[in-house]
């Protein structure tokens, strides 16, 4: 670890004026986010606003069109390949889809980062993997192949894999989706526990307002390429802002658009009808 990590007042992740475009569409139009060390920070926002994209930008898998992302004092997009990989060793990421390797079983999937990055003897690898699998309740499923898991189980197995190297920071992309109330409860306890036990920093992307506000220290709500609210979770949960209330209370009408950008429905329908009448292609 470099000396930067001792600088504990600095946020672990510092995003400044981030801009990212998909074609013409601005996914991020100048956002600033700070993720304090040792905290759980929730990123919320409607589906399709770019929460997954944000995590991929932080992990250095996508390049921003403008702006910077610093993780632990290092500009992620200025690092060379070797340093980027070193940085990623200290990041765990839980993918929305799980992203387990499909040609090896659950045990080997969780053991994979250990085998790649350490020279630990087999007995210790076994112990570490079983401990992590136990934590997510899948010790008994260790011999199953990923294709034999349900969606929720796959995500929990992926979680075990994300934490097996004891990273400094974990990014959870929708950890609660597809979990039954019991495993949901377990995860809701597991995330803060992991965070406390090893002074981890967690970023949780989630739609589950209730669960997320309960465990998060900080919340950022993103919509339409902007951060529409950010701050301590109590403050956000009690916010009176229209934008935030609409999202937190799940109201269909309000300033946060439920629809993907489009022209009005009537215009779309009429246009089709007109095109049919004249026989022209739209």
């Amino acid at each position: 670890m470099s000396q930067q990590s001792d600088n504990s007042n600095e946020p672990l992740v510092k995003i400044r004026d981030l801009r990212f475009y998909r074609g013409e569409r601005a996914i991020f139009d100048g956002i600033d986010i700070d993720i304090p060390r040792g905290s759980i920070t929730a990123i919320m926002g409607p589906s399709g606003t770019g929460k997954t994209t944000l995590l991929k930008l932080i992990g250095g898998q996508l390049r921003p069109d403008a702006g910077t992302i610093h993780v632990d004092g290092q500009d992620v997009h200025k690092l060379n390949n070797k340093d980027l990989y070193k940085l990623r060793m200290r990041m765990g990421m839980l993918f929305q889809s799980g992203a387990l390797l499909t040609d090896i079983n659950v045990f080997e999937n969780v053991a994979y980062p250990l085998r790649e990055h350490t020279r630990l003897p087999e007995s210790i690898i076994r112990k570490l993997v079983l401990i992590k699998l136990e934590a997510v309740g899948l010790r008994g499923a260790r011999d199953l192949m990923p294709s034999e898991l349900s969606g929720g189980m796959a995500r929990r197995a992926a979680l075990a894999r994300a934490i097996v190297l004891d990273p400094k920071m974990i990014m959870y992309d929708e950890p609660f989706t597809g979990q039954d109330p019991i495993s949901m409860g377990v995860l809701v306890q597991l995330i803060p526990r992991l965070n406390k036990a090893s002074r981890l920093t967690s970023i949780v992307v989630s739609h589950d307002v209730q669960e997320t506000t309960n465990i998060a220290d900080m919340i950022y709500v993103i919509s339409n390429g902007k951060v529409i609210a950010g701050g301590p979770s109590k403050q956000i949960a009690n916010s009176t802002s229209f934008w935030v209330r609409q999202f937190m209370d799940g109201l269909p009408d309000g300033p946060v658009p439920f629809h993907f950008p489009a022209k009005p429905l009537e215009a779309d329908i009429l246009e089709k009808a007109a095109a049919h009448k004249t026989g022209a292609t739209p």
């Binding site: 499909t102 790649e116 990055h117």
Partner: peptide
């Protein structure tokens, strides 16, 4: 398929090229 199911991305994030 490994790309479509994000296995390649997953490897990248595990710091495996």
């Amino acid at each position: 398929l490994m790309k479509a199911t994000e296995q390649l991305s997953g490897l990248e994030m595990m710091a495996v090229d």
